[in-house]
């Protein structure tokens, strides 16, 4: 106690000059480590550029995305290559539409699908897993068996059926992807919750009489976030890949809308006519975005790794 009395006097003196010390949270620590990781930071910048491209690209585009250039149509292989003079920065597609504007449009939709899919996974999956894990017992058993059953259904089959039965629309695509994306997340969240549940700070909250839902939202979920954030950065590219695959099959996004997958499919179809730019530009954005997401995920995992803390 003697030491503390001295300390307190010291603090009391400081108190006049300074107010409360701002603490450094675990997330602030993680952020600092993340920004030391060069690959992750470069990826973050690249991804920001891709985002900016999808948001503001249409302002730079000379041509709208739905207008055919009649002067080029018919001679696309000769005249349709990328050029600055006629305003087709990325060339034109096989119908004579400006590929730059099309790629902007495709990037918007692909990123939206990826992010919405991952968001559904994060919100639904985390809450579902945390509730199942925290409640335990029979409720946990039933909830996780439902996940098992859903997971055992071949989802590509269901997704294709959904799109065929209810018509091909972006909304249906979101529903389909949303239905499957949260399953893995809920398992991860549950596993983590089981280890957190026995920690003393959760016990302390229970002993005080904090309501179960408050415990989940205040004590469990924030401590899950590290794992969830890492997993969701890996989930975004997975969602984009799924959507691209569906679109590549011709079931996903429909004309006049487009996505990376649809653009790549069109570009791949016309490869033999010597219009390689139609494949190259959507592919380029597709690849750099996926790489960026993976590197950011890696960086986040290293930054949030509890072993380093």
């Amino acid at each position: 106690m003697m030491v503390d009395v001295q300390k307190m006097e010291q603090f009391a003196e400081n108190l006049a000059a300074q107010e409360e010390v701002q603490g450094r949270s675990l997330f602030a620590d993680a952020r600092r480590r993340f920004f030391k990781n060069k690959a992750a930071v470069v990826s973050l910048i690249v991804l920001c550029c891709v985002f900016a491209f999808s948001m503001f690209g249409h302002m730079i585009a000379v041509w709208p995305n739905d207008e055919m250039d009649w002067g080029i149509l018919g001679q696309i292989a000769e005249l349709g290559a990328p050029s600055i003079e006629n305003g087709h920065y990325f060339g034109v597609d096989e119908l004579g539409r400006d590929l730059f504007a099309r790629v902007v449009q495709g990037t918007q939709i692909s990123l939206m699908v990826g992010i919405v899919g991952a968001l559904i996974a994060v919100i639904v999956g985390t809450l579902y897993g945390a509730i199942a894990g925290y409640t335990g017992g029979k409720v946990d058993n039933v909830m996780m068996r439902i996940v098992d059953i859903l997971q055992s259904i071949p989802y590509m089959f269901v997704l294709i059926l959904l799109l065929v039965v209810f018509g091909r629309s972006i909304f249906m695509l979101f529903v389909g992807i949303g239905l499957i994306s949260w399953l893995d997340m809920s398992r991860i969240a549950r596993g983590q919750t089981l280890t957190l549940k026995n920690k003393e700070f959760v016990e302390a909250a229970m002993a005080t009489g904090v309501k179960p839902l408050t415990i989940i939202l205040r004590h469990i979920v924030p401590n899950l976030l590290g794992v969830v954030v890492v997993y969701s950065t890996l989930l975004v590219p997975q969602m984009i890949l799924t959507e691209s695959f569906i679109s590549f099959l011709g079931l996903g996004v429909q004309e006049p809308n487009t996505s990376w997958g649809a653009l790549i499919a069109e570009g791949a179809g016309t490869m033999q006519y010597g219009t390689l730019w139609q494949l190259a530009f959507p592919m380029f954005f597709f690849i750099i975005s996926l790489f960026s997401f993976f590197f950011i995920g890696d960086g986040l995992r290293d930054a949030l790794d509890p072993k380093d803390q």
């Binding site: 300390k7 307190m8 603090f11 400081n14 108190l15 300074q18 107010e19 409360e20 010390v21 701002q22 603490g23 450094r24 949270s25 675990l26 803390q309």
Partner: peptide, 11 residues
């Protein structure tokens, strides 16, 4: 010290 009110447990 009351000044430590905003600190986190690991500190």
């Amino acid at each position: 010290s009351g000044r430590m009110i905003n600190r986190y447990p690991h500190e």
